[in-house]
Design a protein around this nucleic acid. Structure first.
Lengths: 217, 217, 217, 217
DNA sequence: TATGAATGAGAGTTCATTCAT
DNA sequence: TATGAATGAACTCTCATTCAT
């Protein structure tokens, strides 16, 4: 059918728009995560994305707004991946192992996300507050973990006094630090955190730590 | 004797010199930790420290050099406090408990240090590499922990396969995150990490996690 | 056709662009020649050319780059005029007379060129080296003189051992000094080199000196 | 005698003063001749001369005053050398040959003097006018040449219509240019004016040009 | 939508000069 | 005389933002 072959006008416009808009947004995530809000350059984003500077203002409004959009998009991608863990099919301990392992790896593979979060904390969370959706985006992670904890407790393999938010925090902390403090730690203690070997050993250590922590006495 | 009570001329001069220089450095630590390298303003540092802008260049050379000096001073203060733990007088488990607790608290009380470290990681460790003394400043922390581990292992209360650097990393990660990600975490999960109650509960959780991890099977 | 009379869009755009850029360049030549590289003020160039300060950086990159552009343009104009001598139509002696006379006059009429060259020699030729085209721009002057010398020698009116570069240097020196040392010489010896009468007498003296030098024995 | 052995107090003071003062002045000549008035740095002069910056103000008053002092001293040294030519003992032609040759060489050996003069012409002679002695310092050069011209004319070896100021100017011009335009000329025409061989060939050319010019027909 | 030119506020830095000792 | 510290004006340069087309 011809109708299927033809894109409606609006869709075409949307698609083309998205081309430039998406390029800008992707480059912006790189630029902001690399240099922070104040260090990022609108000129650099325009040049790197091949777009005219005016387009940035056309699509996003201004530097701060672009930063907010980049921040939101970073979180969205992060949690989207998380939703693909499929840990409900496994028993509690292997499930938690997989969750920690995947979380740890995601951090390592997406330093730009870690850096965006660092930047925003340097900004004292000023901009994240402009994204009300963020809570909805992130909360499922707690629900997931909560379910897992309850399953583990019910089966008697996890201790009974687990707080899923606190546990989530520990997993995050141990995953985050490896990337966030990569440069200072590597330099000071001469241990290259980016190397595969160190990464894998550390992942095991982190998994071990979490599992020992949750294990029923 | 009165002559002894009087400061010699040189000392006075030194003290005065330190006056301006130290004021600048202290304000710089605040400014850089608050806004990062690119976001910090030389004008603001001058105004806040009551010094003429030229004095910053007179004493430190330039913005980057001042940043490096602020970075080094932050680390120096951090490790100085650490050296006052006196954990050798305690048995391994209480000693480790005290070390973790004090480390956790120091981070909470000195967010400017955490922020400096975050900034420098945003900068990809470009400036920290200009401070060769930094390794010497930080290494004792590992020695301390190493001694403790060996005591614990010898006494049979710690597991035998502990790596002090890895353990140090875990303690740091769990202490660091609470401050570094304070704003984003608090907002997203609605849990005020800066509140006393949350802080203390989290401290216990962290101590617990570390102790369970090192405990001999 | 009327369409031919109309400027194409691109040409208009080009013309307008040249407007600001050219104004800046012209003013820059004046400013740099008047005060030298270090003494020239970017603010003054912006104000005088009616351009925004940022435009200087937009078009030229920086103060030094603008200086280089001004230097190159000065040489270009100088040699362009020189190429219009048409001395090939005259016998050797009148031809040389015309060449010396015109060179001498050009210097007097374009003190900004002499001052640019002085400035660059104060700078030890640091910037001229960044203009590789400069040799190509200036070499024709030697070719011109070389042809003339050979004609004169062939006709037996010039001595046989003439070196065109050396001769060129003498003509330049005698033309240059009158402008380059105008202020000091005028003050010290109380002879106003800028006055028409002195200028003309001196021109005759210079022509005479060159002609006596080349004349066949 | 004791009086001979002892320096009077004033003299001691003078001598010591001269130590610092002279050092500053010598360094100032180098600095101003190297960078011009606006390019020279008080800090650099202080550092290079080993004197405190305050001393420059104590002895000379300010940057401009120091520049004037450096300018005057440069001229003084120049003319002092000139007064040692002893050309009265020679016949006119060899005398003139020696004068031109020595003038040419002095310029080459004292580029700092040429550069000071260039600088002052860039300044449009603004500061030289503050040195009334300068005329008295320089006029003897004309007297010397005038005497020589008259001897030569009287002996019939020089043409009768020589103007000593004009002749002086030609000698100066041909000597000056070789140093003043050293960098631009060398670069453009690929002839290293600083090399010994080129220098000597050029000196002969200049002497030749002057002698042919004055020779009686 | 897209572009190149333009703007203006403000940032880091320099530098002659002065001051207290 | 001599010094180190301090000052303030001015300078070069940057950068987010807007405008005309």
């Amino acid at each position: 059918m011809t109708t299927k072959a033809r894109k409606p006008k609006a869709a075409i416009a949307k698609a083309e728009e998205d081309g430039t808009r998406d390029k800008i947004l992707n480059v912006a995530i790189q630029e902001f995560s690399r240099y922070g809000l104040s260090g990022a350059r609108i000129d650099a984003i325009a040049a790197e994305s091949g777009a005219n500077k005016g387009m940035i203002y056309y699509y996003f409004g201004g530097k701060d707004d672009l930063y907010v959009a980049a921040l939101e998009e970073s979180y969205r991608r992060f949690r989207q991946i998380e939703s693909e863990f499929h840990i409900d099919d496994l028993p509690p301990v292997p499930a938690l192992r997989r969750l920690v392992s995947a979380t740890f790896d995601y951090h390592a593979v997406h330093p730009e996300f870690i850096r965006m979060v660092m930047s925003e904390n340097i900004n004292q969370g000023e901009y994240i507050r402009k994204i009300p959706e963020l809570q909805a985006i992130n909360r499922p992670a707690i629900g997931l973990l909560d379910n897992l904890c309850q399953r583990g407790i019910a089966e008697g393999v996890f201790r009974a006094d687990l707080d899923p938010v606190d546990l989530h925090m520990s997993i995050s902390a141990l995953s985050f630090y490896n990337v966030s403090n990569r440069y200072t730690f590597s330099y000071i203690f001469d241990r290259d955190l980016a190397s595969k070997k160190v990464h894998e050993a550390r992942r095991e250590s982190v998994i071990d730590m979490i599992l020992r922590y949750v294990r029923a006495p």
